[in-house]
């Protein structure tokens, strides 16, 4: 464990908790938040942590896996079940066909994995899925331009998580003799590029919104 990875995990957790708090605590509507992206994230954790009960890495690792699964499912539950929130979720805007993404990632995982076992294929699937899970949110943001519920902190922590993980991989590459995580690194770079695109549209929406608000 290095400080970059620990900080990356913490900022990742913070981004999830900020979104959960925003949706649940303020009972605010979930306009502008893509339920599909949140469902894909929950699926990423569920398929990645299948080894939760078979391989023990550390207490930190086991606890964080439970926290990630619980918090991501809590967001999905809130957006699907919570009477106040679900009414406001605009499903006719959140129309990204994520089935295709699921299928593409699964086929890719069947072709590209470290070892052809059930857990390893689903681990690779979760890595690819995490890279593209932001797409429904990106499309929704391009359509709605609404950043009210996607607070700046959420985007900030999401970016910090990606940046710190890339530094973590560079650090491990130079300090550990045979550190090769090609699947995670290449997919992580694709994910970071998509996040950069998301941040760009977030900034544009935020800028136009502030301009719109000015004359009022």
């Amino acid at each position: 464990m290095n400080i970059f990875r620990f900080a990356g995990d913490m900022t990742h957790l913070m981004s999830i908790l900020i979104l959960l708090l925003k949706i649940y605590a303020t009972k605010s509507c979930a306009v502008g938040i893509s339920l599909k992206t949140q469902e894909l994230y929950a699926l990423v954790f569920l398929t990645r942590y299948l080894d939760q009960f078979t391989d023990y890495v550390s207490l930190y690792n086991s606890v964080m896996k439970v926290v990630f699964i619980a918090s991501s499912l809590a967001i999905v539950w809130c957006m699907r079940r919570h009477p106040l929130v679900r009414k406001s979720y605009d499903k006719d805007l959140d129309t990204f066909r994520h089935q295709y993404v699921l299928l593409a990632c699964f086929v890719l995982a069947l072709l590209l994995h470290e070892i052809f076992t059930f857990q390893e294929v689903f681990w690779a699937f979760s890595i690819y899925l995490e890279a593209v899970a932001i797409l429904p949110q990106l499309v929704l943001l391009q359509r709605s331009g609404n950043v009210d519920n996607l607070t700046g902190q959420y985007v900030l922590f999401l970016g910090a998580y990606r940046g710190l993980y890339i530094i973590n991989w560079i650090y491990r590459y130079f300090t550990e003799d045979h550190f090769t995580r090609w699947i995670a690194c290449v997919s992580g770079l694709v994910q970071t590029a998509l996040y950069a695109d998301f941040f760009y549209y977030y900034y544009l929406s935020w800028k136009t919104n502030t301009k719109l608000k000015l004359p009022a």
Binding site: M1, R5, D9, H12, R48, D51, D55, V57, S58, N61, M64, K65, F68, E114, I115, E120, W123, Y165, N168, T180, R181, A184
Partner: peptide
């Protein structure tokens, strides 16, 4: 056979 490295990252 070479074992896949343990998945120590979250």
């Amino acid at each position: 056979e070479d074992e896949a490295p343990t998945k120590d990252e979250l």
